[in-house]
Design a protein around this nucleic acid. Structure first.
Lengths: 133, 133
DNA sequence: ATATTATTGCAAATCAGTTGCAATAAGTCA
DNA sequence: TGACTTATTGCAACTGATTTGCAATAATAT
């Protein structure tokens, strides 16, 4: 609580009930706003989806959450990890797993070959999990 | 013409004027449906956006085009390349450049570390082009 | 406690993409 | 060539995800 409290305060933002609730529901699994909303409902915490969107946006700006995208037009949010990582999405059942990867080499290569100053990248994998395979 | 014609025919599809027109407008630069539509308008070829969507879908299925996504909810289409490649998007001006990359190692690592059977991946870079930098 | 102002929730809008269906036009075959 | 079959088109209307405007509400500072 305190850490999120502090980060919010540092940016002139307030720690509200909806924000606390949404924070508790976040996990290291990327989740859509719909999924987050459903989790909240199960906990008898009814929060408008607009508030969820705005709160997640705020969390992303403060570095508390990450926003990802897979193959559709839906954004997914997860707790910001200490560790930079990527995901594999099962195209059978939708299951998502983390992939840790040392990309230093890769980035070095890219930086060497591109005239762009590279700031960030998106990398996601798709396939079949053990069950679906 | 003949190659697209042949591919279409092989799948029981027809080569129509809209399809020819859309094909001529595709390039190796990823373009949104809106951009494609505007290019067509400039050439006095008015084609409904629904037709553009369906045609691009068809092209993607036949391996004539690729569908990509960057940071928003919009899909981008480009001519299917002989060469598998990725992109860098300039966050200043939107310019997109290709990045060629030997990912064999990377994929090998991932395959070794993940229990998933990996079928495909998305990899895009973001940064600033020379002008915007 | 009060004032200030960030935040919430509702309704309505927007944006990208999809679906249903009747009208049209490729390709086929006599 | 001309009739026929059926893929394809275009319109209208719809969906799903996200955003915006605004008045009501609730955190924080004084």
């Amino acid at each position: 609580m305190t850490s999120i409290q502090a980060k919010l305060a540092a940016h002139g933002h307030r720690l509200t009930k909806p924000r606390q609730a949404i924070f508790t529901v976040l996990s290291h699994q990327p989740q859509s706003v719909l999924e987050i909303s459903q989790k909240l409902s199960k906990k008898k915490l009814q929060i408008d989806k607009v508030t969820i969107y705005r709160t997640l946006d705020c969390f992303v700006n403060l570095g508390l959450a990450n926003k990802t995208q897979f193959k559709d037009q839906t954004f997914f949010y997860e707790l910001a990890d200490h560790k930079h990582h990527h995901h594999v999405v099962c195209e059978g059942c939708g299951k998502i797993a983390d992939i840790e990867l040392d990309e230093a080499e890769l980035l070095q290569k890219v930086r060497k070959n591109s005239p762009f100053q590279i700031k960030s990248h998106h990398l996601e994998f798709f396939g079949l999990c053990q069950k679906c395979h």
